[in-house]
Amino acid sequence: MKRTHLPLNGLRVLDAAARHLSFTRAADELAVTPAAVGQQIRALEDMLGVVLFRRTPKGLELTPEAEAGLPALRQGFLEIEESVRAMQAGQSSQHITIAAPRDLTAKWLSARLADYAAENPSVQFLLVAADEALDFTEANLDLAIRLTSDAQGYEGAPLDEGRFVTVAAPSGAADGVIGWPGCPQEGGAILIRVADAGLAIDAAAHGFGRASVPELIARAEIASGRVVQVANSDKAGQGYWVIAPLPQWRQKKVKALVAMLTA
Results as ranks from 00 to 15, higher is better:
26 A>Q: 04
123 V>W: 00
169 A>S: 15
30 L>A: 02
178 I>A: 00
134 L>N: 02
161 E>M: 10
259 A>G: 04
139 A>M: 10
9 N>W: 14
103 D>L: 00
3 R>D: 14
221 E>A: 15
129 A>R: 12
194 V>A: 07
245 P>T: 08
107 K>L: 14
75 Q>K: 13
152 Q>K: 08
28 D>C: 06
197 A>S: 15
124 Q>D: 11
76 G>P: 07
69 G>P: 00
61 E>F: 04
164 F>P: 05
205 A>H: 01
11 L>N: 04
252 K>S: 12
233 S>T: 10
25 R>I: 02
169 A>M: 04
193 R>E: 15
200 A>Y: 02
140 N>W: 10
133 A>L: 07
74 R>Y: 05
14 L>E: 02
87 M>T: 10
20 H>E: 15
160 D>F: 10
263 A>D: 13
107 K>E: 15
153 G>T: 07
177 V>L: 00
186 E>P: 02
171 S>P: 04
172 G>M: 00
2 K>G: 09
102 R>T: 11
189 A>Q: 13
110 S>W: 07
157 A>N: 06
140 N>A: 14
100 A>C: 09
51 V>Q: 13
218 A>Q: 01
223 A>E: 15
102 R>S: 12
221 E>W: 05
83 S>D: 09
17 A>F: 05
95 H>T: 12
212 S>W: 01
258 V>M: 04
34 P>D: 07
210 R>A: 01
134 L>T: 05
77 F>V: 08
168 A>E: 11
175 D>G: 05
260 M>N: 10
64 P>G: 03
107 K>Q: 12
63 T>V: 07
72 A>L: 14
72 A>I: 09
50 V>N: 02
147 L>S: 07
237 G>Q: 05
201 I>Y: 01
42 R>C: 04
7 P>N: 08
112 R>F: 06
244 A>C: 09
2 K>I: 11
19 R>Q: 14
96 I>W: 05
151 A>S: 15
239 G>Q: 06
185 Q>W: 11
18 A>G: 10
92 S>E: 15
234 D>R: 13
131 D>Y: 06
76 G>Y: 10
229 Q>N: 08
188 G>L: 02
182 G>R: 02
197 A>K: 01
120 N>T: 14
